[in-house]
Design a protein around this nucleic acid. Sequence first.
DNA 1: CATTGTTCGTTTGTTGGACAATTGAAATAT
DNA 2: ATATTTCAATTGTCCAACAAACGAACAATG
Lengths: 255, 255
Amino acid sequence: MAFARLAILPTYKVVSDTIEREILAGRLTAGDILPTETELADQFGVTRHTVREGIRILEQSGLVRREAGRRLYVAEPHYGDLAPRLSRAMVMQRVTFRELWEVSMDLEPSAAAHAAARIDANRLALLRANLVATEEALAAGVSIIPLDVAFHILVAEAAANRALLLAREPVTQLFYPALERLFTHPKTAHLSPRRLVDAHHRIVEALADGDADVAREWMRKHIVDFRRGYDTAGLDLDDALDPAAAPPARPPARR
Amino acid sequence: MAFARLAILPTYKVVSDTIEREILAGRLTAGDILPTETELADQFGVTRHTVREGIRILEQSGLVRREAGRRLYVAEPHYGDLAPRLSRAMVMQRVTFRELWEVSMDLEPSAAAHAAARIDANRLALLRANLVATEEALAAGVSIIPLDVAFHILVAEAAANRALLLAREPVTQLFYPALERLFTHPKTAHLSPRRLVDAHHRIVEALADGDADVAREWMRKHIVDFRRGYDTAGLDLDDALDPAAAPPARPPARR
DNA sequence: CATTGTTCGTTTGTTGGACAATTGAAATAT
DNA sequence: ATATTTCAATTGTCCAACAAACGAACAATG
């Protein structure tokens, strides 16, 4: 007979797995304060340093959180915690604009359609405010890309689908910054962002009307335009993205 | 006037950020061996413990890897490393079957369509083998869900879009296991998985023919069927998923 | 009375040094 | 040349200590 390979894990990994299991099983729930590092070390029968290494792992998956120097508590992992890592993974794998565009073509129109059915007055107001701000940025001649990113996030959030939000987030983080290059590119200097803003207006109107089909269709045209701009600029769809596009991990809250 | 919050980071975080920056900037590339912990500690002017905590963070994002007890090297983060964490995040946020289904309705048909244009002979052979295995499982009366999951992954890989692959992976990891409940549910016992297998056959044929429209359409029907089954079983689309569905992080390679 | 300073116990962040276990490679024996 | 035995290098873990930051409670200040 033969024995299977023994799964020998370093102690710090066992520590993180053990705590993780308690959280996933629901015996520890969001907001619960964990024991202090010293207590954990005593309970597990290991050194505090080993516990600390385990904690570092848990923090990375967003299962626990600590606000600088304070006690550790259980948290619900938020997609925003994980999306930057995904974006970096894509950059390192030299994902192309075409790949991002294809996914956006699937998810963004769909998000708009769902949003039409589910949007509330509050978020609609935020979208209208975004339109105003975009018009102002346009008039002032500053970049509208950040506002464009915000627009698409608002629409996606209005779709009330967290799986969708999570799926599109890392794509968005790379997709829209890639457009910055577009609007500052010499060959597209003549291209007015007017068309982009008009599409946004149409989409918001459709959302306000609750018209899913129109919302979907305008979003589709809007995403198609991005690709068209890319072509017009003479950029190669199949070039890898600029590594500088990788978003920085946001600093932890510190209050 | 008001001052901005000071960005004071713990040393271990500075360590991980610094190494990360070198990797992202391309000054360290995949396969490079990092200095030993002691050397890093000397170079940074901190203790080895502090370096180790920083390393734990980098390992989690997949940027560096270490095979148990050996030197640290730079790695390309693979989506497989990150997807489980995303799945867990969704479970903890009590994502519903409806949300997963909506995203699948967007991504799976699209993946099939792209695959029709890009699939190679090798992967087509794998898909055919999957069909055979599924028929056998069906005849033997064992669960076909694992094979179903494998089928959809093969199709998605054939689409040659890593952003798509990354976006759908965490959804898939939860979606298909949820179907296990379906086929073992008393109310759907009469439902034959025959329909599922037929759809798979149609899709593979369409891929072999390079017919994107047919591939997309059959995949669409296939995903619609899942929802229909869910309704038939009398399960509530808007119930949170079973927490037990959260996939375990796979143990690290250890050779 | 609101703000500022003081003190104190608790907890995290970081350091130092130590050692067993494992690994990779060099040196030795067969 | 191949197998075996050292041996130095490196990781994983431990123990002990202290500085820094925080929370709270309370005194002092204007």
